[in-house]
C-alpha cells in the first residue's frame, strides 16, 4: 500500500497523459467522423467509395496492428513525402502515432453515429427554417446542429468510453501513459499485481466520471423535447453506438 501511495503522483501524471491522449484522439475522430458522415450523406461516387475503404480498413484491422504500422511504417511514408518537397526528416512520436491511430479508428465509428443522427432530423424542419427566411448557415447552426448533438450524444458517449480504453495500447510503443508508467513502476518495485490493479481502478474511475457527464449532457440537450419523445429515445438503440457497445 505504501508503494502505491509513493507512486500515486506518477500514476496521476500518467492518467493525465491518458486523458490528454483521449481528448486529442476524440477531436481528430470528430473531424474525421464529420467528414465521413458528410461523404456518405452528400458525397458523390468517389467520396462514397473513399468512405467505404476507410470503414473497411477500420472494420478489418486490429487497433494495435494499425498503430504499429503508423508508428513504424508511417514514418517512412511521411519522410518520403516531406523530402520530396525538399524538407528535413520528421519524427513520429508515440503520442502522435497513438492520436492518429485512435482518431482514425473512432472517426469511422463516429461517422456512423453522425450519419444516423443527421438522418433522424425530420427534413421538414430545415425546409421550414429556410422558408422562414433563415440563411443556409443559420438554419444549420440554429436548427440542425443542436438536434444533431442531441441525437448523436448517446452514440458519442459510447464511442468515447470505448476510445478511452483503447488508449492503453499506445503504451506498447513506449508512451508513458498510465499503463506505461505503471508497467515501469511494476518492474522496478516487482509488484505488478498492485500497479495493474491500480490502473484498472483508474480506468473505471474515468469511465464512471465521463458516464455521469454524458448523462447530464444528454439531459441538458433534450430539455425542450416533449416527454413522450424522450421516453422513446431512451429505449431506442443509440445511433451507431450499438455496434460498438461490445468493443474493448
Amino acid at each position: 500500500m505504501e508503494t502505491l501511495i509513493a507512486f500515486s503522483p506518477l500514476l496521476l501524471q500518467g492518467a493525465l497523459v491518458t486523458i490528454t491522449l483521449a481528448l486529442c484522439s476524440v477531436a481528430l475522430a470528430i473531424a474525421l467522423g464529420g467528414l465521413g458522415a458528410w461523404a456518405k450523406i452528400a458525397g458523390g461516387w468517389f467520396t462514397r467509395s473513399l468512405a467505404t475503404v476507410y470503414t473497411t480498413i477500420v472494420r478489418g484491422v486490429p487497433d494495435l496492428v494499425l498503430m504499429l504500422l503508423i508508428y513504424f511504417g508511417g514514418q517512412r511514408l511521411l519522410n518520403q513525402l516531406v523530402r520530396s518537397f525538399g524538407g528535413e526528416g520528421v519524427d513520429v512520436s508515440p503520442f502522435l502515432a497513438g492520436t492518429v491511430t485512435i482518431g482514425f479508428i473512432f472517426g469511422a465509428y463516429l461517422a456512423e453515429t453522425f450519419r444516423g443522427a443527421y438522418l433522424a432530423i425530420p427534413r421538414g424542419q430545415v425546409e421550414a427554417a429556410r422558408s422562414l427566411g433563415l440563411g443556409k448557415f443559420s438554419a444549420l447552426w440554429t436548427v440542425t446542429l443542436p438536434q444533431l448533438i442531441r441525437h448523436a450524444l448517446p452514440g458519442f458517449g459510447n464511442v468515447w468510453l470505448v476510445l478511452v480504453k483503447s488508449t492503453a495500447i499506445v503504451s506498447v510503443i513506449g508512451l508513458e501513459d498510465v499503463v506505461g508508467l505503471a508497467d515501469k513502476a511494476a518492474k522496478s518495485t516487482r509488484e505488478p499485481f498492485l500497479f495493474f490493479l491500480a490502473v484498472i481502478v483508474v480506468f473505471l474511475a474515468i469511465t464512471a466520471v465521463s458516464g455521469a457527464l454524458f448523462k447530464w449532457l444528454e439531459k441538458r440537450y433534450s430539455q425542450q423535447v416533449a416527454v413522450e419523445e424522450d421516453a422513446k429515445e431512451d429505449g431506442a438503440k443509440p445511433a451507431g453506438g450499438g455496434a460498438l457497445a461490445a468493443a474493448r
Binding site: L16, T20, C24, G89, V90, D91, S93, F95, L96, E176
Partner: peptide, 12 residues
C-alpha cells in the same frame, strides 16, 4: 510536459 510528449518530434 504534454507539449514535450507530443513534440519529441524533431529528429533534426
Amino acid at each position: 510536459a504534454v507539449a514535450a510528449t507530443v513534440f519529441t518530434a524533431s529528429a533534426a
